[in-house]
Simulated scan of single mutants.
Amino acid sequence: MRNAEATKERILEAAMAEFSSYGIAGARVDRIAKNAGCNKNMIYIYFENKETLFITVLQKHLTRVYEEVTFTPEDLPGYAAKVFDFAIANPDLYRLLAWYGLEQKNIHLTERASVQQKKIKEVTNAQNEGLIGTTFTPGFLLTAIMALATAWTASSPYGPSYAPDALNKPNETREAIAKAVSLLAQGKENTPK
């Protein structure tokens, strides 16, 4: 049994590298098998097809994110800083998410949707308790937080192009992200006088 689990893990690791580099359409099962040191048929035995393997890899890594980056609605700036650190440390995952967004609009990730709904509910509760401003809807606020926190990943066209030196100063960038999220979370509108 250990050998089967070890083979599955090698397949998942090789698939992560392949899918994050080439997406689903460009990925090749032959390369995954070669890099995993197994027979191509083992991939089909364990995962049925390339799309199922892709979703398995993505779900595995998203679960890791949910476990390692604790969502804290009462400290959204701190949460954004943790997401930034995780995103910079895991560029393959963010390339994988970019490929998912480009290629798999019709595949619904149940766990991801559940986690997103839970976060929306927690932000709504924090707004109702007065911990977060209500200028922005929970969905908009969470989208803005994720956009800011992941803007400097390899898959983002914006952060690296507008502020190419930001990753040379990760502490300053993290602090700027946290400050921007703090301002968003306060939700105080500054109207020109």
Rank of each mutant, 00 (worst) to 15 (best):
V181M: 02
A36E: 03
A163R: 02
L142I: 09
L58K: 12
L97D: 01
A180K: 15
E5L: 15
Y100V: 05
A6W: 10
L167W: 04
R10M: 05
A144I: 06
Y79S: 04
N35W: 00
E51Q: 15
N39L: 08
P73Y: 02
N35C: 07
A17D: 05
N41W: 12
M16F: 11
N106A: 14
K119H: 11
I32M: 06
E172D: 12
E111N: 06
G130N: 10
D85C: 12
N49R: 00
N106Q: 13
A185G: 07
L142T: 07
I177Q: 02
L62G: 14
L102V: 04
L76F: 05
F47Q: 03
Y66P: 11
T143N: 14
V69N: 03
P77C: 09
H108R: 09
F86I: 08
C38H: 01
W99M: 06
L53M: 03
Y158R: 05
L62A: 13
I11K: 00
R95A: 13
E18L: 12
T143D: 13
K105L: 08
Q117N: 10
G187F: 01
S155L: 07
Y162R: 13
P91M: 10
I24E: 07
T124M: 12
A126E: 00
L131N: 09
K105T: 08
Q59L: 15
I120F: 08
T153F: 00
C38I: 07
P138I: 03
E189C: 14
F86Y: 12
F19Y: 03
R174H: 01
A176E: 03
A81Y: 00
V83I: 15
G133C: 03
V57E: 01
A80L: 06
K40P: 00
M146G: 11
D85G: 13
R174I: 02
A27I: 09
R10G: 08
A147S: 13
L109T: 08
E172W: 14
Y22H: 14
A14I: 11
A144Y: 02
A36T: 03
D75V: 04
I107V: 15
L96Y: 04
L53T: 01
T63I: 11
W152A: 09
P160G: 10
E175I: 03
D92P: 09
Y162G: 10
E122R: 00
P160A: 10
K8A: 13
K105M: 09
D30R: 03
F84Q: 07
K193V: 14
P170M: 05
N35Q: 07
C38N: 06
G78N: 06
L183E: 12
S21D: 10
P138A: 01
E13Y: 10
A185L: 01
L183G: 14
P138T: 04
L76E: 04
A149R: 04
L12Y: 01
E18P: 15
